[in-house]
Amino acid sequence: MKKLLWPGITAVLLLAYPLVFTTPFQQRLGALVLLYAIAASAWNIVGGYAGQISVGHVVFFGCGAYASLALFTHTGLPPVLGMPLGIAAAVGIAAIIGTPTLRLSGHYFSMATIAVAELARLVTTNTEFLGAAVGLSGPTVPRTWLDLSFISSVPYYYLFLAVLVITLGITWWMERSRIGFYLRAIRDSEKAARSLGARAPRVKLIAYLLSAGLTSVAGSLYALMFQFVDPESGLGILISVKMLIMAALGGAGLLFGPLVGAAILVPLEEISNSLLGGRGAGLTFVLYGAIIVLIARFRPDGILGLFQSARKAPEKHDA
């Protein structure tokens, strides 16, 4: 019973947020926190649990965003129907690039994923079908409710909350399954995991495919809300980095780490931009950078990391 107390309180708070904070900007802020929390939680499956630090997850985010808006642009169907296509594309791409790249150790994997993401951005920039440099737009005026185009952010908020719950549910289930056990073993030492009987490449690939598919859903949701994607906003390296730092800041490899990271960084960025951005001296990012540095300096395991280290020995980086 006690175990469910805090998750329960968190759930009530999340459900009540848009009813307590009623201005459109506050509600949008809440929706954005959830959107980034979905993306960072999806990243967490492979980056946190399996310890394979992808800096190219934006490829999968882009699959979702582009599938939704490309479907609308070329067929006129509601963007939300592109979501399954995006998932299929993301899982397909993950299967193709996962096999060779997941063999790479440590930073080599990170660098390979950056290269893949940049490749995707450059190719998209030169592909007419995907809107090339101009990008793709959604329906300018909603035609039916299926376009999921709302003035208020509240419908998005609850939609994103539902998807976040599903994402965290899948993660929770995985964490407790045999796969989760193997993933943690692999993260701590791949050799040891093999001796435990884990087929490391296969387990890592499963986590990678799952993570890719969920990240793609975040991309589709982004496209529904903003109704626009171009190569920089759909496939830029900054989005990959944001997923990573949100998860790392909250606590990578912890179920609620990405949500906490997003709940800190998204309001920090939006509010400091609102208060300071108009002065035009880059103060927003000085503040943003300073806070990240301080958290990394004093809580390298992330905000929730303290109780993780109590549970298991701090990991060593394998060279």
């Binding site: 968190t10 708070l13 949500l259």
Partner: peptide
């Protein structure tokens, strides 16, 4: 301590958001 963190972080975020109203 351990279970308070996510809630505390969310609360901070909410406070920040509230500061913007009006």
């Amino acid at each position: 301590m351990m279970k308070r963190s996510p809630w505390a972080a969310l609360a901070v975020a909410s406070l920040l958001a509230a500061g913007l109203s009006g």
